[in-house]
Amino acid sequence: MDKKRKSVSYAKWGYIFIAPFLIVFIVCQLIPLASTVYNSFFENYMNGLDQVGPNFVGFQNYITLFTPKNGNIDILNYAWNTMLMWIMGAIPQLVFSLLLAVIFTSARLNIKGQTFFKTVIYMPNLVMASAFSMLFFTLFSNVGPVNQIIQAMTNTTFNFFLDPMATRSIVAFINFLMWFGNTTILLMAGIMGIDQSLFEAASIDGANSTQVFFKITLPLLMPILLYVAITSLIGGLQMFDVPQIITAGSGNPQRSCMTLIMALNRYIGSGSKNYGMGGAVSVVIFIITGALSMIVFKSMVQGGDKPKKAKKIKGAVK
């Protein structure tokens, strides 16, 4: 009886301990999320100093979002820009990270100074993206050092920020530079999680390092690679700081660098306060990320179970 009373009073403490987290989560994220969705069905914006709405308009905001304007569906263009800049950064990022992770974990190569190299490649990840982008803007601007070198060599300058692919490349390069160190460390953890006896067995069987990489490392790394790729994609969908600073919020040249979140920022910024259209854009982003998150969530639940089972079996054998 004593026991029973105790467990009841402790359950109360459980609720008390998680209460702040849950309350703040509900107030600051769940309710805003619900009101974002709710608002997407209303006309609600500032026209100059006049408040328009809120008036219920059904799916009109979504229809507006996907209706071609001057032959363009802006939101699809922005989605395309976001994806393109993500891919341009993510591919070299994965290649570099995979290569570095293999080099760092190779017992055969036995690389010295690993701590130094890891410290250096991880550093850009912690640097303020907006300041880093500002730096790259100044470096590549018309009066910046890159153009001074081009000028010295060719006697002309190249305006990087008037060329869509050049601007996109700079954005993608910054993203690559900021994230390849992080990805390297994640992949290293993955490689070190692979059963070492497999590598030993392969080397006894006379496999060379290329064979080991393609036949053992890569297949066994697939779940983590998938996790890294999808989380990177979710991060990519949120791309904002770098293109926002690089293009001063315009997304130019020809809005080729306008991303989904930049569009959202334009709608809900203090200028237009267009919570209707902003809500519709948010819902679109939410659906895409939600679908991707489900994949990660599922792979995490699976990935979390498998090693445990494997460990248990190993323990039993011992």
Partner: peptide, 16 residues
């Protein structure tokens, strides 16, 4: 909900 970015609730949050 860990993976859901804060940006998607930003419209409602800013309004609030």
């Amino acid at each position: 909900i860990m993976m859901i970015p804060t940006q998607v609730s930003a419209a409602g949050f800013v309004q609030m």
